[in-house]
Design a protein around this nucleic acid. Structure first.
Length: 810
DNA sequence: CGCCGTACGGTTTTT
DNA sequence: CCGTACGGCG
């Protein structure tokens, strides 16, 4: 097959552009992955470029696999020589080879989000910061952004402009020191250290610049500063062969420090850039495209882009207003069933949502109906407790200085090393200025050191031989030494074991299976299955030499989200967040939760830039659909246990009516009332006459005939008494009857609105003054910021939650 | 001092 | 609803 066959003129230009910088502005569904693949193939096949001299960087591992598959289809095994992967994967590989030149430990471990949080929490405790005032999550986010912009703690400290940033600067500096002590890199480090390496070590920079004749970057709108600097180091301006592909309208990762300015700066940094626009859409119907463009057109910060298709109008967009999230899920399931009956595959359908929590209602319905589904994201395999525990043991074998992993498994399974002893250990280690592992060795004294010189555990200092005063009581000391000798045994055995054998050894020595059965009587078996699955994954590395294998296994696990990993062969409906759906396409897309507060998310309300990003996110969702698009919203929705009512999304209002079909309830999706176990509204006693449990098949459209005459506002608590029969037949545990549930915002919230300047009293926080008071999206509640006297300071409170009363003020 | 139960507070998106 | 914080018990 010819590489240039079947390309349209725009695509042809992008594929055949030879030397020099190239910017491809690729609209959704414009065949951009195909263009990149063909461009690579063309360079190699026609331009005589050696595969080893091409680097292609993608955003996800999945995209990397897809690209490799496409290139392989064009070039065969030649494609194997190409350097192809995510920025993080490519950089990690570079650091393993050359990182030691700038002091990166060869056996570094990678800290993920939860490891970072653990580190930050340890530091805030060390500095005795109040987590209420200085939320670890907020601190980490500032640090991460600073790092992605290549700031050092010193540089950051010089630029602080608030007390909070001052605090962050102190944490930042300690954070970096601890990462170094633990021989760990966080996600940002993987990029930052590679930048440092290429920037500071000329010989290495020259080597990589020479090696990579062509650099390609996909999803360029979502790169951060470090990534762009890295790309420039590999392909220096003004004339290098760099090809970046992106779409500013699909930039949805600014919260992860993606910097949309990169795409704007590109033409400035590479003045000879050739710009190619791919505007023909091969994916969606004209109707879907029109709707998407109408939504994105409302953004002010954007360049005009006009998409077109030859695909024809297709079906109208189906808009459906469900009563609540359960009925929303029921409608989804009903439509899926109907389509399946009409010959569609379940795999053709994706259900998309803004937040992971929204998958719950869908899953429950799918399980109840025995509809196969595939949940992308959610609690990821590698985030499961049992998996993290065992990986922590393996990480310790590779790098015992990793004190986060050490802290994780020091008492798992229980060795009777409690909080007190653990705190004592880290304080003691800190006072000695050594990692926890070294402190343990010192505790053991020189007699503990293994005889086998080849398998000697790493040592930092020669102080080990000196006698030490430790703060531990005898039982605590014995327990700690027990752990140390276990760890040293694992370290000693590791060099001659495959990864899967090592894992087995860990499981045996820790009696991990017994631990699971004892501690998790309900789901212990399921957890054990996960452990076995982990062993299967580990076995894939058994061919390699042991140290390499262990390193690669742990690294792959850290850099691979299993969003990338799902099995596409099973015919199942895909449940996925809008973010994770980027780059994918489906014949049928159903977006649920088209509501103010959800999409756009409430956190974007006070920032126009963030609001524009929500709009782009919505645009990304719409443009995933090839043939049919459903937009759903629920009239009521339980969010975090509280009932709430969200108005329809502003994005729905942007849709031209002629593109939309307002759906009525489908028969299959007929709403079944909540089961007795579910929450019971406050007025249920008044409605307890309602019929009992719906028998199978008794459901139907008649269940609530009067709904939705008007979509807004008129529904009081009594509007649907029949759908909330009493919890007849259910068992309400003693003591629970006092609890009043309501699906409505509390009336008292409406009765007691506050205004700025008023004096108030909170049951716990005492007296204070209202700083700001703003209605929430629903209008039925208020978010009040109060400055309290005394140690509590400024707090944001939701009126419907907070026991807040007005004080008379003179 | 460690473990287990209950209360409480926070709540987006992920390489 | 879920994970963390705290308090009582062994």
């Amino acid at each position: 097959m010819s590489i240039l066959e079947g390309l349209n003129p725009e695509q042809h230009a992008a594929v055949t552009h030879g030397e020099g910088p190239l910017l491809i502005l690729a609209g959704p569904g414009s065949g951009k992955t195909r263009v990149i693949a063909h461009r690579i193939a063309h360079l190699i096949d026609e331009g005589g470029v050696a595969p080893g001299r091409v680097m292609a960087v993608t955003f996800t591992n999945k995209a990397a696999r897809e690209l490799r598959d496409r290139v392989e289809a064009l070039l065969g095994s030649l494609a194997r020589g190409i350097t192809l992967g995510t920025f993080h994967a490519v950089c990690a590989r570079i650091l393993r080879v050359d990182g030691e030149q700038i002091g990166v430990p060869h056996a570094f471990v990678i800290y993920d989000d939860s490891d970072q949080m653990a580190l930050i929490k340890r530091i805030t405790a060390e500095l005795s910061l109040d987590p209420r005032q200085h939320a670890p999550r907020a601190i980490l986010s500032v640090i991460s952004r600073a790092k992605s912009e290549l700031a050092t703690p010193t540089a950051f400290a010089e630029g602080v402009s608030s007390y909070f940033e001052e605090v962050v600067a102190r944490v930042f500096s300690r954070y970096e020191a601890l990462l170094a002590e633990n021989a760990a890199l966080d996600f940002d480090d993987i990029l930052v250290k590679t930048v440092t390496l290429l920037r500071d070590v000329e010989a290495i920079r020259d080597r990589y610049q020479e090696r990579y004749e062509h650099v390609l970057v996909d999803e360029f709108q979502d790169t951060n500063v470090a990534q762009y600097v890295l790309a420039r180091l590999l392909a220096p301006p003004p004339a290098a062969n760099i090809c970046v592909v992106g779409d500013p309208d699909q930039s949805i990762y600014s919260w992860r420090s993606a910097d949309i300015r990169n795409i704007l700066n590109f033409e400035r940094d590479y003045p000879k850039t050739r710009v190619v626009r791919l505007e023909q859409n091969y994916r969606s119907t004209q109707t879907i495209l029109d709707a998407a463009q109408r939504i994105i057109a409302a953004n002010r910060e954007r360049k005009e882009q006009s998409l077109w298709t030859e695909k024809g109008r297709g079906d109208p967009i189906v808009v459906y207003e469900a009563y609540n999230e359960e009925e929303e899920a029921a409608f989804v399931a009903g439509e899926v069933r109907r389509m399946a009956r009409e010959g569609s595959h379940l795999g053709d359908v994706a259900v998309m949502y803004r937040t992971n929590a929204q998958s719950r209602a869908l899953e429950e319905r799918f399980v109840a109906e025995r509809l196969p589904y595939r949940l992308v994201g959610g609690t990821r395999f590698y985030e499961r407790r049992e998996i993290k525990d065992l990986l922590a043991y393996l990480r310790l074998v590779l790098n015992p200085f990793d004190s986060i992993s050490l802290g994780r498994v020091l008492n798992v399974p229980s060795r009777r090393i409690g909080d007190r002893t653990q705190q004592e250990l880290s304080a003691w280690a800190q006072s000695l200025g050594v990692p926890a592992y070294t402190a343990l060795q010192m505790l053991a004294g020189s007699g503990e050191a293994p005889r086998d010189s080849e398998a000697q555990p790493p040592r930092l200092l020669s102080i080990l031989d000196a006698p030490v005063e430790s703060p531990f009581a005898t039982p605590a000391k014995a327990a700690l030494l027990g752990f140390l000798s276990l760890l040293n045994e694992l370290i000693a055995e590791a060099p001659v074991l495959t990864v899967s054998r090592l894992l087995t050894l860990v499981i045996e020595r820790t009696r991990y299976r017994d631990y699971l059965t004892d501690q998790f009587p309900v789901d212990g078996d399921e957890r054990w299955e996960n452990v076995q699955e982990l062993r299967n994954v580990a076995a894939q590395f058994d061919e390699l030499e042991p140290e390499q294998a262990l390193m690669r296994f742990i690294e792959d696990v850290a850099l691979m989200s299993d969003t990338d990993e799902y099995d596409e062969k099973i015919d199942a409906v895909t449940l996925i967040t809008l973010h994770a759906a980027k780059g994918l396409e489906f014949p049928v897309v159903m977006i649920v939760g088209m509501e103010e507060g959800l999409l756009p998310h409430i956190r974007s309300f006070d920032d126009p830039a963030q609001m524009e990003e929500e709009r782009r996110l919505c645009y990304v969702g719409l443009t995933r659909a090839k043939d049919r698009l459903y937009l759903l919203r629920a009239f009521r929705r339980a969010l975090m246990g509280q009932g709430s009512h969200n108005p329809p999304s502003r994005f729905l209002k942007d849709l031209p009516p002629e593109l939309v079909h307002q759906a009525q309830q489908n028969v299959e999706g007929a709403y079944r009332r909540p089961t007795a176990r579910q929450r019971q509204p406050a007025w249920s006693t008044a409605a307890s006459v309602a019929s009992g449990r719906p028998s199978e098949g008794s459901h139907g459209p008649q269940a609530h005939p009067e709904r939705f005459q008007s979509s807004e506002g008129s529904h009081g608590p009594q509007a649907h008494p029949e759908r909330f029969p009493s919890n007849q037949g259910s068992h309400v545990p003693e003591g629970h009857h006092e609890r009043v549930w309501s699906d409505e915002p509390q009336p008292r919230a409406l009765a007691a609105l506050f205004a700025a300047g008023e004096h108030v009293r909170h049951a716990r926080f005492g007296e204070g003054i209202v700083v700001t008071a703003a209605a929430t999206a629903s209008g039925a509640d208020q978010e009040v910021t109060v400055a309290f006297k005394g140690e509590f300071g400024v707090k944001k409170l939701l009126l419907s939650f907070a026991p807040l009363e007005r004080l008379d003020h003179h």
